[in-house]
Design a protein around this nucleic acid. Structure first.
Lengths: 232, 232
DNA sequence: GCTTCAAAATGACTTTTATCATATATTTGA
DNA sequence: TCAAATATATGATAAAAGTCATTTTGAAGC
């Protein structure tokens, strides 16, 4: 049995689409939603499907990915607490463009499509938040496109290690607080698994990162930024 | 002196953000906007800038691109009549993520930021249209990411020739109704200019396309679809 | 219609990255 | 804890794509 999660909690998370909604609105959403859990590895949404609602993630980490020609995953982005899944498809009235799979045990709230649209109609602020969110992600997607098109595999790997650190943070020992296989990293970078393995070894030998099995620690962020040619 | 363009015209173009707005709203927008022209080659918006309004394109063709490390353009998408420029940046309150340059003489209407937000506030329909638009583009961006990450240059070139045909259509002789240099095509595909030149020659020798200088004609769309591994 | 300049085409060569094979290490679950 | 499965590591090789140099063609301006 799930402990119900109050929408007030999620509305205060950074970047939440529910940010700034008044208590009455949040209470109303609370009544329309149901709480669900997903086990590590469980598929939450399938590319091509027509979702009947959106998920608001409360705990856990999720990868969003499309499947290429040979069935190879291309990870588009990660989803963590406070983020929505499925809203793109519902709002553009198109099939889901990316599958979602839990990277660890995940708790989320399910808001049916009709309720979701009701919140939009009743709360211009929510609608504006969603606009801001999707426009922000559009910018991020543009950056990813430019990286993939113009940077080398090594540059992209360094860039993604930095993105992982920003997105998931570090544990007490300084290791990235996300567990990904080399294959998953390759599926983000857009390269072969072996190439990622080789380059991670190289970065480790250079002392810029540490790695113990799946665990990766960024030792020298500015070196990675230099390798990635990120000037921000 | 520009002939003023009525917003009713653009609101009827396919995919217009102004679709479905009532006449009063459109009249009001007409009063807030100014008409501007851009010459072929002219830069309309600069990456990194803070736009003070959006452009609604009435006539012409525009490329949106980001600049990579070496100053190389990466074309993200094209903009044609009925499309908006600059809305992403204004809505996410971030600097412009892509520069815009006119590929041919272009006519557009400029709507100041404050007016743009007023239209959003007064017309939930407009706000919803923008949401739909940005979410659709987010899906397209995801597809582009997967292509860049997983497909070969030849596959991507074939794909983009098909996209160009869909976006710009053909003239009386069947040639694509858009004039791009090989370099610009390379900047879409994410490859070197010489590679595009070689592959275009190859596709021509195979009879799948014709090309006379810059003009390109798709002879065999299904062959291109097969090369691009597009199964839609 | 020339002339000039830029774009396209092509060849030779290099670099990057992918693929395949195999060995080693790390998880996972019984 | 140990065995089996999975993931990581590394080498050898092949394929893809990039770079540089040069020629040919086409477009734009006079």
């Amino acid at each position: 049995m799930e402990t119900p999660i109050r929408c007030q909690f999620c509305s205060h998370l950074p970047g939440s689409a529910f940010h700034g909604l008044n208590n009455d609105a949040l209470e109303e959403i609370s009544h329309m939603k149901t709480c669900v859990s997903f086990r590590k590895g469980q598929v939450i949404m399938h590319e091509g499907a027509r979702p009947q609602g959106v998920y608001c993630v409360h705990r856990g980490k999720i990868k969003l990915y499309t499947l290429g020609t040979e069935g190879k995953e291309q990870i588009i982005r990660f989803v963590t607490k406070g983020d929505l899944i499925g809203y793109r498809s519902i709002l553009s009235d198109e099939p889901i463009s990316a599958s979602a799979t839990a990277l660890e045990d995940t708790h989320a709230c399910y808001i049916p499509k009709s309720s979701f649209f009701k919140v939009i109609e009743d709360n211009p602020k929510f609608s504006l938040n969603l606009l801001q969110l999707s426009c922000h992600e559009l910018g991020e997607a543009g950056k990813m496109i430019t990286s993939l098109a113009q940077k080398s595999v090594k540059e992209r790997l360094a860039e993604i290690l930095l993105i992982l650190r920003t997105t998931f943070g570090e544990d007490e020992e300084g290791y990235l607080d996300i567990s990904l296989t080399r294959e998953e990293i390759a599926n983000m970078v857009g390269t072969a698994t072996e190439s990622v393995i080789r380059l991670i070894s190289e970065l480790r030998k250079d002392g810029f990162i540490d790695s113990k099995g799946k665990r990766i620690k960024v030792n020298d962020g500015s070196a990675l930024r230099e390798i990635a040619s990120v000037f921000e």
